[in-house]
């Protein structure tokens, strides 16, 4: 039963990085790919229908942690208290930028929130980098709070840079899939520029981890290097796909890459948390509900993607 819930948690967390990853990436690139007010609105419309349905993946991660792994939740959140608080504030401001931005016509108001969105998206990507970098060294023991040196040391900072590059690259490929005309061309060009550096940084972050941070157990090292290597290779390959106009394939590849940091983290922590799951009776009860609802959730999300599969053009409905 523990294993089923661990797999579900892993899928939700990986899924979150894939789907909110391109929202974060789009936010990062808002002013670079979109030059005019109308173009920026088109970028926000590209993520628009999915934005709410994407970030709930993280809410669900929080829910599954609370229900099935309450003690892991405390060690991850409480143990990295200052980092998590900053991450939450950044998340809130990122969301507010998207919600508030187009609610007034004033160009100054819109430009202000656009800048806020770029900054908070970059900070949010960096937060995830710091979180993963710090957690790869192991979660702080129960009841302890890690200090600044641990949360923002050189290794977490390397991850922060890698995650900003990774999400930006992922976002640019997503925009190439969703936009049309000149904007699509610009997104393609941005993707072509970003994908190789992102691949390099991801490979560097994982291999540096294998040498410096990860516990010297062959199964952890091997799977971490393998997953990280695959992620980096996927980014590298995505560049060729973008240049050949195969946007869908490129997005599949960058999605794999976006999920890879979480997969590395889960491999690292898996051995560390024996007995961290909730009691079997609780897991069984939750499992009954999950069995019924998960197919519905998958169906709802699939329907959402299907309903809004068309590229953004002049006739697309806007909101954000």
């Amino acid at each position: 039963m523990d294993l089923v819930w661990a797999v579900l948690l892993g899928l939700l967390f990986c899924g979150y990085f894939v789907v909110d990853g391109f929202d974060i990436g789009t936010g990062l690139l808002l002013r670079r790919v979109g030059h005019t007010e109308g173009e920026r609105r088109a970028l926000l419309t590209a993520i628009g229908p999915f934005f709410l349905g994407n970030e709930v993946w993280l809410v669900a991660v929080g829910g599954v942690l609370a229900g099935a792994f309450p003690l892991v939740k405390d060690r991850a959140l409480g143990g990295m208290y200052p980092l998590v608080v900053v991450g939450l504030l950044v998340w809130v401001l990122r969301d507010a930028s998207i919600w508030f931005r187009s609610r007034r016509g004033s160009l100054g108001w819109r430009a202000g929130w656009d800048r806020m969105l770029v900054v908070t998206s970059a900070a949010f990507a960096a937060f995830w980098g710091l979180f993963i970098g710090a957690a790869l060294a192991g979660l702080p023991p129960a009841g302890a709070t890690a200090g600044a040196a641990r949360l923002a040391g050189p290794y977490p900072l390397l991850w922060a840079v890698a995650m900003v590059a990774l999400f930006a690259a992922h976002g640019s490929v997503f925009l190439a899939v969703r936009l049309s005309g000149d904007l699509m061309k610009r997104a393609e060009a941005t993707a072509a520029r970003l994908l190789r550096p992102a691949a390099g940084l991801l490979a560097l972050a994982v291999s540096a981890g294998a040498v410096l941070v990860l516990p010297k157990r062959w199964e952890v090292l091997l799977s971490a290097v393998l997953i990280g290597g695959l992620g980096a290779a996927a980014l590298w390959a995505a560049r060729a796909a973008v240049r050949r106009g195969r946007h869908g394939r490129a997005l599949t590849l960058t999605s794999l890459a976006a999920a890879s940091p979480v997969a590395v983290l889960l491999v690292r922590l898996a051995g560390d948390l024996p007995g961290a799951a909730a009691d079997d009776d609780t897991l069984r009860t939750l499992g009954g509900f999950a069995l019924v609802t998960l197919p519905l959730l998958v169906a709802a999300q699939a329907w959402m993607w299907w309903a809004f599969r068309r590229r953004v053009d002049a006739g697309t409905v806007v909101f954000f």
Partner: peptide
């Protein structure tokens, strides 16, 4: 205490946010 909160996110909020966006 965690069980109803987990179900809130999975059964209720997940669906609510997805469909509101749509």
């Amino acid at each position: 205490f965690g069980a109803p909160l987990a179900l809130e996110t999975l059964i209720a909020f997940f669906v609510e946010a997805t469909f509101l966006g749509m």
